[in-house]
Amino acid sequence: MSGNGNAAATAEENSPKMRVIRVGTRKSQLARIQTDSVVATLKASYPGLQFEIIAMSTTGDKILDTALSKIGEKSLFTKELEHALEKNEVDLVVHSLKDLPTVLPPGFTIGAICKRENPHDAVVFHPKFVGKTLETLPEKSVVGTSSLRRAAQLQRKFPHLEFRSIRGNLNTRLRKLDEQQEFSAIILATAGLQRMGWHNRVGQILHPEECMYAVGQGALGVEVRAKDQDILDLVGVLHDPETLLRCIAERAFLRHLEGGCSVPVAVHTAMKDGQLYLTGGVWSLDGSDSIQETMQATIHVPAQHEDGPEDDPQLVGITARNIPRGPQLAAQNLGISLANLLLSKGAKNILDVARQLNDAH
């Protein structure tokens, strides 16, 4: 009898209710805020589980004197976190989706994509230029951005401005803007500013005609071990179906173009009346040469937790077992079709030249 009692006690200790789920994140304040929001949602869904947040620095956090596009290494903000995932030191990792490459290392998958916040870019102005827009900034004003995508589009749109690289986390960039006289304004992701509670610093939100956004911008991705079915089931509740389908289309477009950090590629997606609209573009580094096109596809946005595919093969690095396969494939095909259209119009040449120029500098 006593033996059975011990077995029952052991089973209770090993039951999922007692389990601590370890969540990996970057150390920056924004990353911690984003991770806290994901953990809060998981806690609400699984009140019996405990969650421990483990923060670590990544290569991208450490190399702050070089433009991201020049470092010449993929997975700048993800490699150390993936290493911890691989060694079973954490069970899942919360990322900004735009930091996750469209091809993940073997053994990993994006197990959830959370509801997207505003994906557009924002302009934050130096205190002396508050009330201005990019259009009304004085001639030769210097605007800071760490992104080739932003610089290429904005140089084309605002030729009277000069664009220079600015690195560091959000706090560091804002301090550089406010305390030094080098920059009249800087460009940042609206979602990051909003998550930090800095709505009052948003001086201008850039519309798609001015600057399309990065693939996955404004959404959070939760990376897990691809074979860890328990954790895949656990994080599945975080999937937002519309965000998922938009981001599958965007990531398929980028992957098929073979774009990345070192080339200016941008997108804009919208879901309306059962249609998914995808606009994508590529630019030369100075913005003088560009190709942009829009395509659409009829896609039914499923309700969360309709029964999805059981075999769960990944699409552009994403596993969404609780979302039907048909809409996911339709979104992926839309991204591939748009990429093929741009490639047929000469996108590869623009991107190759951009890559060579970026590598040469």
Rank of each mutant, 00 (worst) to 15 (best):
C247H: 00
V123R: 01
V267G: 05
G131P: 06
L338M: 13
Y277A: 13
L174F: 14
E82V: 06
V90W: 04
L238D: 10
R164Y: 07
D178H: 12
I63K: 04
K128D: 08
R167M: 07
R149C: 03
M56E: 12
H120M: 13
L285V: 09
E209M: 05
G260D: 15
Q217M: 01
A191I: 00
T59H: 10
E117C: 13
N169H: 12
L174E: 04
E306W: 12
G197M: 02
K348H: 15
P309N: 15
A152Q: 05
L134R: 03
L148T: 09
I336C: 00
F125C: 02
A354V: 05
N88S: 11
A84E: 07
K348F: 11
L193D: 03
K157L: 12
I71T: 08
F253T: 04
L244H: 04
I187L: 09
L338G: 03
L174P: 03
Y46G: 06
I291P: 09
G24H: 02
F158V: 05
V235C: 02
L49D: 08
N169V: 12
T294S: 14
G60P: 02
P119V: 09
Y46A: 08
A266K: 07
I63G: 11
G280P: 01
E117Y: 11
L177D: 03
P127D: 06
A297K: 01
G221R: 01
L276E: 03
F125E: 07
R164L: 10
G72C: 06
L254Y: 00
Q153R: 03
H126I: 15
A270N: 04
D121P: 03
D240F: 10
Q229S: 03
Q217F: 03
R201D: 12
V301F: 14
G203R: 04
G144P: 02
D311Y: 07
V353N: 15
L341P: 03
L104K: 01
V263L: 12
S69L: 08
M212P: 05
T190C: 14
R195G: 05
P208I: 13
L232Q: 02
P105S: 10
P208E: 01
Q34R: 00
L220A: 14
G131S: 11
R22G: 08
T25G: 05
H239S: 12
L188I: 03
R201N: 07
I33N: 11
F129G: 08
L238W: 04
A152F: 04
G280F: 02
V103L: 07
L338S: 12
K272R: 09
S146W: 10
D65G: 08
L42R: 01
C247G: 05
P119W: 11
S75A: 13
I71M: 15
K62S: 13
L134P: 04
K132T: 10
K348N: 15
K115P: 13
A360T: 14
I299S: 07
M56N: 07
D312P: 04
D178K: 04
L341W: 08
T66G: 11
L161Q: 12
G236L: 04
K348G: 14
L85V: 10
Q34V: 06
R156C: 09
R255A: 06
R201P: 04
L161T: 08
N169D: 06
E258R: 01
P105V: 05
Q328S: 14
D178Y: 13
R246K: 06
G326S: 11
L343P: 05
L276Q: 04
K27F: 12
E242I: 02
L104Q: 08
A112G: 08
G317I: 10
V222N: 00
Q155R: 11
P208Y: 14
G48K: 14
G144V: 05
R26A: 04
A31D: 00
V103N: 09
W283Q: 11
M295T: 06
V123W: 01
G203E: 03
F51P: 12
D230V: 11
P208G: 13
I21W: 10
V93D: 07
E223M: 00
C261P: 01
D273Y: 11
V38H: 04
T78C: 13
K43W: 09
L137T: 04
K140S: 13
T78I: 14
M212S: 10
F108R: 14
E162T: 06
L193R: 02
Q304I: 04
S141A: 13
E258G: 15
P241L: 02
I231Q: 00
K79M: 09
A112M: 02
N333Y: 05
H268Y: 14
D91I: 04
C114P: 10
V263D: 04
I54P: 03
I33D: 11
H239P: 07
L341K: 12
D91M: 03
S337Q: 01
Q34F: 04
A360D: 12
T172R: 09
P101T: 12
K348Q: 09
K27R: 15
H256V: 10
I21N: 03
G72W: 06
Q204E: 09
R251V: 08
L285R: 10
T35M: 10
H95S: 05
P309V: 15
L244E: 02
S96P: 04
Q204W: 02
L341C: 06
L342I: 06
A330Y: 00
S288H: 01
L154V: 10
L92F: 10
G168Q: 02
A44Q: 10
I113G: 04
G280T: 01
E139V: 08
V103I: 08
K128H: 11
P327C: 02
H305K: 03
H300F: 14
L170G: 12
D240P: 04
A84F: 11
R164F: 08
I166G: 04
V142Y: 10
L68H: 06
V39W: 06
G107W: 15
E135Q: 14
R195C: 04
G317L: 03
R19T: 10
T58H: 01
P105Q: 11
F253V: 06
I113Q: 04
V282G: 07
L154K: 05
L100V: 08
A226F: 10
G60A: 05
K98V: 02
V142T: 11
L81M: 08
K98I: 04
L85T: 06
K128E: 15
A270M: 15
A40P: 04
V235E: 05
D233V: 07
L137S: 06
V94H: 06
K157W: 05
P127A: 06
L134K: 02
M295P: 03
L276G: 05
L220R: 03
K27E: 10
P313Q: 03
Q292Y: 05
